[in-house]
Simulated assay, not measured.
Amino acid sequence: MTHPDIIVIGGGIAGISAAAELAAHARVTVIETEAQLGYHSTGRSAAIFIRNYGNATLRALNAAAAPVFEAPEGISDRSLLSPRGELLLAGEDELGTLQAYCDGASGIDLLEATDAVDLVPILRPERIVRAALERDAQDIDVDRMLQGYARLLKARGGQVVTSAPVTAIRRGHAAWQVTAGDRPFTAPVLVNAAGAWADPVARLAGVAPLGITPMRRSAALLPAPKGHDISRWPLFGSISETWYAKPDAGKLMVSPADEDPVAPHDAWPDDMVLAEGLHRYEQAVTVPVTRVDHSWAGLRSFAADRTPVAGFAPEADGFFWLAGQGGYGVQTAPALAQLTAALVTGAEPGLSDATVAALSPARFHSS
């Protein structure tokens, strides 16, 4: 399908989910640089669904995505979620941050230090003044989600082209002309779901970039603390996002919650940043870090206002932005995919006008 109705650039969860929704209405081709889908940010996600994570626009997307995660018709035969919980810890100087997080949130229980230690026994109670527990935060089976959307896309007649770096894009008389992996593709609509490469793709197409900035997020996998069954521990971390930890297949994943602006690339962790983050984690717990089994990094790409971008570029006919998902990409993907399909096909979006406007790239062009 070198002449589809829609070309989607990017085979992460954003591009694949949007393509699957669009394929119900049109002929869709996804173009991915790497040899496999979800190689970059999707495959390195913390993989948790937190309804209260993000600003008001993101919380609206979380709410819209929840029914899909719980009953992923056409994607999986069972829920993509499993119980986890999220425990956010605050010292004396972080109480304001904790209160701000709880404002407008739902399903949050405020806990004392002893309650927090009951949930995660390795925490130092003297470091905790208050804690917030969101019991309904849940793990996401990201691989099953990605593969399910890919199957749905193909079942609806869509095509995925991998190992095909995009080298040229130009707008013809009535269609976008894309060269990828030395093959030509043309389509009236081009969806830019290129993640950390969203701005470079726009420049290649002659479209003004939006200032989508990739930021590195590192993580390390540690052995489970001896004598503890961590399988039912919640994700736990600092309310100020200076570190967090999460059980992961019998081990403990710890992140320094870094956000260092970088050029788009196949990310790897900075040893100093990782060491500093592990030190902050060690100060909060009673168990020292004695071994790192594995470490990695991914890129979380943000617009300046830390809100995703979804909508047609005002100045470029048929160029659709689906970018800037930051650290919310997996958990908002079902909602943004449905919105993309609605906006591209002219259907009624299932989100409020205010939310759609907050996501639109037009917000960067207003005077």
Rank of each mutant, 00 (worst) to 15 (best):
D293Q: 14
H279I: 08
R280D: 02
R300G: 07
L278R: 07
A284M: 15
P264A: 09
A275H: 00
A297T: 05
P308D: 02
H279R: 13
S295Q: 14
P264H: 07
V262S: 13
V287P: 07
S255P: 06
L274G: 00
V262K: 06
R300S: 05
G298S: 08
V289P: 01
H265S: 11
H279A: 13
W268R: 13
P269G: 00
R291L: 10
V285D: 00
M253N: 03
E282Y: 03
P264M: 12
H294E: 14
V262H: 12
V273F: 02
D293P: 15
L299C: 00
F302H: 06
V287G: 11
R306N: 11
A263L: 15
D271W: 10
W296P: 02
A297F: 08
M272C: 09
D266V: 11
W296R: 06
D266P: 10
Q283F: 01
A297R: 01
D271G: 05
P269H: 01
G298W: 04
W268I: 08
L274F: 06
P308V: 09
A304C: 11
Q283T: 11
V273L: 11
V287H: 09
R291Y: 03
D271L: 12
E282V: 02
E276I: 15
A267G: 07
P269T: 06
F302W: 04
P264Y: 10
G277T: 05
S301D: 14
A303V: 12
R306Q: 14
S301A: 13
R280A: 04
A304R: 11
R280W: 09
V285K: 05
A263Q: 15
V262C: 15
G298N: 09
V262F: 09
V287Y: 05
T290M: 12
L274P: 09
A303C: 14
L252K: 03
L274E: 00
P288R: 04
D293V: 10
V292C: 08
E276H: 13
D258I: 07
A284W: 15
A275W: 06
P308S: 09
L252Q: 05
V287N: 10
A297S: 01
V254C: 01
D271Q: 11
A275P: 02
L299H: 04
R300A: 06
P261S: 07
V289G: 02
S255W: 04
V292A: 06
P261L: 02
L278G: 03
A297D: 07
S301N: 10
H294L: 12
T307L: 10
A304M: 12
W296Y: 01
S301P: 13
